[in-house]
Computed example of a mutant assay.
Amino acid sequence: MTPPLIAVLNGPNLNMLGTRQPEVYGSATLDDVEALCAETAEALGLAIDFRQTNGEGELITWVQECRGRAVGIIINPAGYSHTSIALMDALKAVDLPVIEVHISNIHRREEFRHLSYVSKAATGVIAGLGIQGYALALRAMAELLEEEGEP
């Protein structure tokens, strides 16, 4: 039996993890995040499709492609959290559980980061726990799916 697929989608500038503002985002790279997600997913009996883009339109297309393909979405929308109503609309349209992840605590940062349009479409939000937030999101997603009776 094929394990349930979780899309792990990452927005702009996350390809710069490890070098971009390590005092805010830590020293882990996006490859480290992907390895953590793969290891966590395997332990939970899940499969992941891990992606990163700097383009808003591409991120929205990936969200739309999840409908009928994935059973849930974990998304770190990065800067699009605070600007993209289109991303929020896409997440609502796919009718899947969504967990929003932020490496830093967006509520302890600049005022403009406190509003996340994506949060309005998310089942839950994890912020400020570094890259471990991704592992926590996968565990939470596994529990949500179990509650919904997904395989």
Rank of each mutant, 00 (worst) to 15 (best):
M1N: 13
M1I: 12
T2H: 12
P4V: 07
P4Y: 04
P4G: 05
L5H: 01
L5Y: 01
I6Q: 09
A7H: 13
V8T: 10
N10Y: 06
G11P: 07
P12N: 13
N13F: 10
M16Q: 13
L17M: 14
G18R: 07
G18Q: 05
T19P: 05
Q21R: 14
E23P: 00
G26A: 03
S27Q: 14
A28Q: 15
L30H: 09
D31E: 13
D32N: 15
E34Y: 03
E34W: 03
E39D: 15
E39Y: 02
T40R: 08
A41P: 09
A41L: 09
E42G: 14
A43R: 15
A43I: 00
L44A: 13
L44Q: 14
L44C: 08
L44D: 01
A47V: 01
I48N: 07
D49P: 00
F50N: 11
F50L: 02
F50I: 01
R51N: 12
Q52V: 12
Q52S: 11
Q52H: 13
Q52T: 09
G55F: 05
G55L: 04
G55P: 00
E56G: 03
G57C: 01
E58I: 08
L59Q: 04
I60H: 06
V63E: 04
E65M: 09
C66W: 02
G68L: 02
R69M: 02
V71L: 01
V71G: 00
G72C: 07
I74L: 12
I74T: 06
I75H: 10
N76L: 11
N76C: 07
N76R: 12
S81D: 10
H82Q: 14
S84L: 00
M88Y: 03
D89P: 02
A90V: 02
K92H: 14
A93P: 01
V94Q: 07
V94N: 11
D95P: 01
P97N: 13
V98A: 09
I99A: 05
V101D: 08
H102L: 04
S104V: 09
N105C: 13
I106N: 02
I106D: 02
H107A: 05
H107I: 03
R108P: 00
R108G: 03
R109M: 07
E110D: 15
E111N: 04
E111W: 07
E111C: 00
E111G: 00
F112P: 02
L115F: 15
S116V: 10
S119L: 08
K120H: 08
A122I: 07
T123M: 00
G124P: 00
V125F: 04
V125M: 05
I126G: 03
L129G: 10
I131H: 06
I131M: 08
Y134L: 09
Y134W: 08
A135Q: 11
A135N: 05
L136D: 10
L138A: 11
L138G: 10
L145M: 13
E146K: 15
E146A: 15
E146F: 07
P151I: 12
